[in-house]
Design a protein around this nucleic acid. Sequence first.
DNA 1: TAATGTGAAGCCTTTCACAGCA
DNA 2: TGCTGTGAAAGGCTTCACATTA
Lengths: 212, 212
Amino acid sequence: MRYHKIPDEAVQRLPIYLRGLLFLLEQGCKNISSRNLADFLGVNHWQIRKDFSYFGGFGTPGTGYDIERLIKEIRKILKLNVVHKAALVGVGNLGLAVLAYPGFRIYGFEIAAAFDNDPKKIGQKVANITIENVSKIQTLRKRKIDLGIITVPCEAAQETFDALAKAGVMGVLSFSPCHKTSRKKLKVIIIDIAMDLARLPYYMPASRAAKA
Amino acid sequence: MRYHKIPDEAVQRLPIYLRGLLFLLEQGCKNISSRNLADFLGVNHWQIRKDFSYFGGFGTPGTGYDIERLIKEIRKILKLNVVHKAALVGVGNLGLAVLAYPGFRIYGFEIAAAFDNDPKKIGQKVANITIENVSKIQTLRKRKIDLGIITVPCEAAQETFDALAKAGVMGVLSFSPCHKTSRKKLKVIIIDIAMDLARLPYYMPASRAAKA
DNA sequence: TAATGTGAAGCCTTTCACAGCA
DNA sequence: TGCTGTGAAAGGCTTCACATTA
């Protein structure tokens, strides 16, 4: 492998491969060819080979890929070979849903703290986590928590984001479109449910919707 | 404008423009140039002009774009000029959060039904919607509901998806990665929170995470 | 003059075909 | 023989520069 620029798109596909490989490993598979993995995931086999080749290529000609090895390599590339601790801010319905979501573990995430500003919630325990006062967000740096998850209402999003940034988190997953991300050197991913829904009708084959 | 293929990426940007334009209209702005809109949204001005040109171009040289007109055009392109009714399946914490989310209205969405399989929940009212038994999903076709939102646990995702497809919805927004989307002619958008989170560490400048 | 709309250039990603290796 | 890894071709999106229009 030469020093290519690695396409963002290739990086974005790695978690998909990882999920599939983890499933296959659990099923008892030890080895898989790019074609079989592609069929299983519903993608192209040359895409898979190309993507892995950006990082050096992990397969054996004539045989395929060792699944366990591949999982390890992808985890290393995505920096998921360490446990990332995340702090969630905003323990409303959405926050509770995220706290209860079991899907984070396979990627090596642990939600290690939860914050809210409602005195009735502070001190309560949810999913083995004691809800803390938002004023304690600054303690994240000391606690080696490097990810923030924003599940607060729109109005509180900006100050929450600023507080997390100030507390030194390196990445933020936000469910609110209502904050500017600032020029700080931290990565932000915004999940905007309404906007995602807004992209649906354009692609829908026909509409039985009523005229507005 | 000639018959170009319109890039998916351009379509995906339209909801962003729409949100910004609606905000500006509310602020009292009547007219805006591509450069000013670009600065406001943090994007490139030629990108904006190009995107609109794919659909014909809606501006006036020397003057800019009439905001109200532009909003109308984008809505028409995205098929948001009609009210789309959506049905939500799975009234857990996530479902409650989605039901309470105020952001859908600006895009012309109305959550018109909610389903669950828990007898304790069925019949209760949430956000002015009476929760119905999932067995009633088949009534969606008659009720002119063309969108489905899946907020059920992983195990129930597949049958929920199949039921919605059978009920004739044209688009599905799913919070579960645990179902195949089938080859049916309906558009599916999957929000996979864990996978989104998994993409963060790669881009994070440094990691203070602990070795696993 | 000021700003749009667009052909063309540039750049990046995907796809292909095949050399090379187990 | 079967499958990987990769240079090269193809395709598509973004950026640019400018002709055009109010």
